[in-house]
Amino acid sequence: MARKEVKSEITGSVWKIVKQPGDGVGEEDALMILESMKMEIPVLAEANGTLAELAVKEGDPVTEGQLLAVLDV
């Protein structure tokens, strides 16, 4: 089991949290949806695993490179 950090690739804000800590996730599942430039940009899991931690909540502003979540994979 390894921990994998999920970082934001864009600047924007957290529009909706889709998965909660403890939830199982499959590769390409949306963990959360960010809002940037009036678009809803899904943040996808890169591998199968479990969502260990959320580092942001709905409404939070995020910048490129910011930690969003941690997966156990």
Binding site: E9, I10, T11, M37, M39, I41
Partner: peptide, 8 residues
Amino acid sequence: NPMVNGGA
């Protein structure tokens, strides 16, 4: 690429 900056 609409996935980044909505393509801006």
